[in-house]
Amino acid sequence: MKLTNAQLAYVPMSETAYYILLSLIEPRHGYGIMQHVEALTNGRLRLGPGTLYGSLSRMERDGLIDVVAEEERRKIYQINEVGMRVLQMELSRLKELYTNGAVALGVQL
């Protein structure tokens, strides 16, 4: 499976895109994503609905997530294989950043 340029352009990823994809490992609707991200970050990151709507539309268009159900004007999204690949690429990038930083600062890994 070869990723398109549009899909590869997701790495490096914005913090919001990262947490949206992470939330969609479970099927969720938009507001469910907001609540999940807020809980994961202990209230630090509150996704704005405009940002979320734009990101979800773009990720669906670029084939990173799928609409798995639709109920009462709410789409339920879930990450697909492409999205998982992109997420893993970002994770290894973050791992490199973290490891180099930790070594340089003498933080225990």
Binding site: Y31, M34, E72, R73
Partner: peptide
């Protein structure tokens, strides 16, 4: 239609 729902839910 999801656009409005998302804002209203939030």
């Amino acid at each position: 239609p999801e656009y409005r729902t998302l804002f209203e839910d939030a």
